[in-house]
Amino acid sequence: MDLLQFARGPALTWAATVFVFGITWRLVGILLLQRSPDFSEARNATSWLGAIKLIVTRSWPRREFRQRTLFAQSVGYIFHIGLVIIVFGFAPHILFFKALTGLVWPNLPSAVINLTSAITLAALIVVLVRRLSHPVLRLLSNFDDYFSWLVTFAPVATGMLTVAHFGARYETLLAIHILSVALLLVWFPFGKLMHSALVFISRGTTGALFERKGASI
């Protein structure tokens, strides 16, 4: 078995299994938690509208803080959107999802993916530099932050090298790229990357609570 066979075979299988196991464990564990009883009288009967509303409003800079948060939020948006485009728009990735789920959708031209990857990498480097240089942010950061950054950065960087056939043989680059994705999958449910699911749950919960109380959202 060579490295690529290992990456495409057991490494992916186990990484994907750990990934779904971890995700379902954490989601089910959180969703089945006991709600603390609320004895106050509800101002609004339906609270889910507030949940959705808060998810949307909190995803946008508030006017009062705009000047201070605009840069960080823009860069954050850039690499998040970039990641979505790369993961779901690149033809070989779609083949990957097709093999797993049977679903197919049209791919984007390679030039778009290449440009997006370059922008995403740059944005990821910017957020790392900011994290390292911003005194408060640096104080708040722990291993989880840096490692989560690394396992996000690595697949994009190795993916670009693989497409360009740069630095090593293609089969080695592809194997390293797939292994970096495997590492991402394994880390995903247990580190801060889990925010991709939990951010909606926490905002939704807050929004529902606010709606019930009649607070402005």
Binding site: R8, G9, L12, P92, L95, F96, K98, A99, L100
Partner: peptide, 11 residues
């Protein structure tokens, strides 16, 4: 006929 970017095993 399995593309190079897909997993080898049926997972």
């Amino acid at each position: 006929y399995r593309p190079l970017s897909t997993p080898l095993a049926d997972n």
